[in-house]
C-alpha cells in the first residue's frame, strides 16, 4: 500500500522534472564542469581519508567490531572532520553520478589513489617503493585515458527509466 503511494509519487516526479539538461550540451563547459567536479570529489575523498587515518592512529581505543568503539572515536576532532569531509565526498559524488557514467566515474576518481600516495609521502613521510611509483603512474595514465572518453554515453534520460 505504502510502496504503491511512493511509486505513484515517483512517477509524478518524473513527469514534472525536466530531462537532464546535460544531455543537450556535450560542449566544452559541460566537460570542464565535469572535470572540476571530479577534482572536488577526489580532493574531498583524499582529505577525508587522511584526516580519518590521522585521527584513528592517535585514538586511544582499538575499534575492532564493537560499535561503542566507533562512537567514542568520533569524539576525536580529526575523526569528526574526516567524517564530515567524507559526507561531502558522498554527496558530490552522487551529483557527479547524476550526469556522468559509472564506468567513467570509477576510473577517473581513482586519481584519489594517486593523490593519496603523494599526500602520504609529503605529509606523513611514508616511503614509496619503485613498484608503488609505477602503480601511481599507471593509475595516472589510466585516468587520463578514461578521461578522454565522453562522460555520458546514455544521452536520453528517459531511456534509463526502463
Amino acid at each position: 500500500m505504502e510502496s504503491a503511494v511512493i511509486e505513484e509519487r515517483e512517477a509524478l516526479e518524473q513527469l514534472v522534472e525536466k530531462p537532464a539538461p546535460v544531455a543537450h550540451r556535450a560542449s566544452r563547459t559541460g566537460r570542464r564542469r565535469t572535470f572540476l567536479l571530479v577534482l572536488a570529489v577526489t580532493i574531498f575523498n583524499c582529505l577525508g581519508n587522511l584526516s580519518l587515518a590521522w585521527g584513528m592512529k592517535h585514538a586511544a581505543v582499538q575499534v575492532g567490531l564493537s560499535p561503542t568503539g566507533y562512537l567514542r572515536d568520533m569524539l576525536n576532532p580529526f575523526v569528526a572532520l574526516g567524517i564530515g569531509l567524507l559526507i561531502l565526498w558522498l554527496l558530490t559524488r552522487m551529483a557527479l553520478l547524476s550526469w556522468a557514467d559509472l564506468s567513467f566515474v570509477l576510473p577517473v576518481t581513482a586519481l584519489g589513489y594517486f593523490l593519496a600516495a603523494v599526500a602520504g609521502r609529503v605529509f606523513l613521510n611514508e616511503p614509496i617503493s619503485r613498484s608503488q611509483w609505477l602503480g601511481t603512474l599507471l593509475i595516472f595514465a589510466g585516468t587520463v585515458l578514461v578521461g578522454s572518453t565522453g562522460h555520458r554515453t546514455r544521452h536520453h534520460a528517459h531511456e534509463v527509466h526502463k
Binding site: S103, L145, V146
Partner: peptide
Amino acid sequence: LKEVVGMRRAVGALLVLCGVVLLAR
C-alpha cells in the same frame, strides 16, 4: 546500466586496476 564501455575506457580501467594492485604491494 547499458553504458558504452569502448576500447579506450576498458584499457584505461585496466591500467588503473594494475596501478592499484601495484600500489598496495
